[in-house]
């Protein structure tokens, strides 16, 4: 990449898609035109002079992000807020709720709790709800990291009307497996060969992320131990012994939806880098959840679309 392209890439960092290409073309055309003028004037260092006149590429990037990306970020955040209020419509579950074994673990850095679902419990309960399951390990992936060369234990659930199966696996990374050890959950870098014969758990957030891939409508209902409705199947995450903090489940859904919307515009990470915006988003989502707490019980619903 030459100096001009490096500058253009830096100036449009954080933008995405067609808009990014269009702005890159605009900057390229404008700078090249200036270089041509400077060369006609006998400037021996026309490129550097033109870039100097343009100014710091990082400042251009920040300005462009504010203009093109931030309104979309806010729009998505507002949309989620609207969904929270608009999805008050009556939802009726045709099947009995099923209880997924869940454990909670406080994070040392703050008072938040993270929730983990036991793989075997997910399997037992979804099977009981009539969802077919395939536990054939996934085939190894060639030319990848060492771990991937081994077969990956997985569970593949086939929901009726789903665009694709729900696939849960103990691969390191986003779906990081966690193992119960002396009453405490610990990260398991070398997951067990079987995810159902051991006390292996997955993070609730990861579970929600995988559920979304099925294409089924996902709803959260209720305030005291809210339930998760996936298509026609209702999953009970918390229990009387372990009350899942409702605002966290609501905000998990809302935050995931917002992040997803933002990533369509490609700037989520860049916005975080430039604006420290994740803090604002976090606060917004939790305010939303707190706001929902004020609503009557029958209105405690949010739909992830």
């Amino acid at each position: 990449m030459n100096r001009l392209e490096q500058y253009i890439a830096q100036a449009t960092k954080g933008l995405y898609g067609k808009k990014k290409l269009e702005i890159q073309a605009e900057l390229r055309g404008s700078i090249e035109a200036r270089i041509w003028q400077l060369e006609l004037q006998g400037n021996q260092n026309a490129l550097e002079t033109a870039l100097l006149e343009m100014g710091d590429a990082r400042n251009i990037s920040v300005g462009l992000i504010k203009e093109h990306l931030m309104p979309n970020v806010l729009k998505n955040a507002v949309l989620v807020g609207i969904f929270a209020i608009a999805s008050i419509s009556a939802l009726t579950s045709s099947q009995a709720q099923i209880q997924v074994e869940t454990v909670g673990q406080s994070l040392s850095t703050d008072k938040m709790s993270m929730y983990y679902l036991r793989f075997s419990s997910i399997k037992e309960n979804l099977e009981a709800a009539g969802i077919s399951v395939d536990d054939t390990p996934l085939a190894p992936v060639e030319n990848s990291v060492a771990y991937s060369l081994a077969t990956k234990p997985s569970l593949r659930f086939r929901f009726p009307d789903a665009k694709q199966d729900l696939v849960l696996q103990t691969a390191p990374g986003f779906d990081s497996p966690w193992k119960a050890d002396a009453g405490e959950l610990v990260f398991d870098p070398k997951p067990s060969a079987s995810i159902t014969n051991d006390r292996v758990y997955m993070n609730l957030w990861s579970f929600l992320h995988q559920l979304k891939k099925t294409g089924l409508p996902i709803n959260v209902e209720g305030w005291r131990n809210p339930s998760l409705k996936v298509g026609k199947t209702t999953l009970q995450i918390g229990s009387e012994k372990l009350l899942v903090t409702p605002w966290q489940l609501y905000s998990s859904i809302a935050s995931q939806a917002v992040q997803e919307g933002v990533s369509e515009f490609g700037g989520w990470l860049m916005v975080m880098e430039y604006m420290g915006y994740e803090i604002m988003l976090f606060v917004l989502m939790h305010l939303l959840a707190r706001f929902m707490q004020l609503l009557p019980q029958s209105m405690h619903r949010i739909q992830w679309v």
């Binding site: 702005i23 605009e26 900057l27 343009m54 100014g55 710091d56 590429a57 400042n59 251009i60 990037s61 920040v62 300005g63 462009l64 504010k66 203009e67 093109h68």
Partner: peptide
Amino acid sequence: FKEGTLYPALHR
């Protein structure tokens, strides 16, 4: 015009 001012303003 400071860098970062012109193009966002034009696009707006």
